[in-house]
């Protein structure tokens, strides 16, 4: 596959790593010369996806989370994957305000936030194997393409 740049990051599903993950992806995306607004869109969405993996995928047991990001032209594609329990009903999980864990004061809008701030959000999940969230952000505010 053709791409202009590639990164891979693997870390334990500890909540400490939420900030680490979003900062790393934001720093990688910076080469696309995004606006602060666009960088925050990416940070917020990565934070949501990683939090989902920690809370729902691994249910606070320790597993590994992998982030692969690829820059193609003016877009960045970000895959956040876990090998956790998977999502039984992806359509239900993506419904605004639906949460399987209301007792944790979760609001159920993680996917809605990702869909609002990114151009494309896709969820691939197999029960017992894990979940991969793919997000694509097109960076508007740029004059030069990365070569």
């Amino acid at each position: 596959m053709e791409y202009n740049n590639y990164m891979k990051l693997e870390f334990e599903s500890k909540s400490h790593n939420e900030a680490f993950a979003r900062v790393v992806v934001a720093a990688f995306a910076a080469q696309l010369d995004p606006t602060i607004e666009e960088i925050t869109d990416i940070k917020t969405s990565v934070s949501e996806a990683v939090t989902n993996a920690i809370i729902h995928g691994y249910e606070d047991k320790i597993g590994l989370i992998t982030i692969v990001a690829v820059i193609r032209g003016k877009e960045i594609e970000i895959d956040v994957s876990d090998n956790g329990k998977g999502i039984e009903n992806v359509i239900k999980a993506m419904e605004p305000l639906y949460t399987s864990k209301p007792e944790l004061e979760r609001s159920g809008i993680g996917f809605t936030v990702m869909e609002t701030f990114m151009n494309v959000v896709k969820v691939y999940s197999t029960v017992g194997e894990g979940t991969r969230i793919r997000m694509i952000k097109r960076i508007q505010n740029q004059n030069t393409e990365i070569r």
Partner: peptide, 12 residues
């Protein structure tokens, strides 16, 4: 910075 976790904090 705030993600959707902030909502739970406020609504709770």
């Amino acid at each position: 910075f705030m993600d959707s976790s902030g909502i739970g904090v406020i609504l709770g």
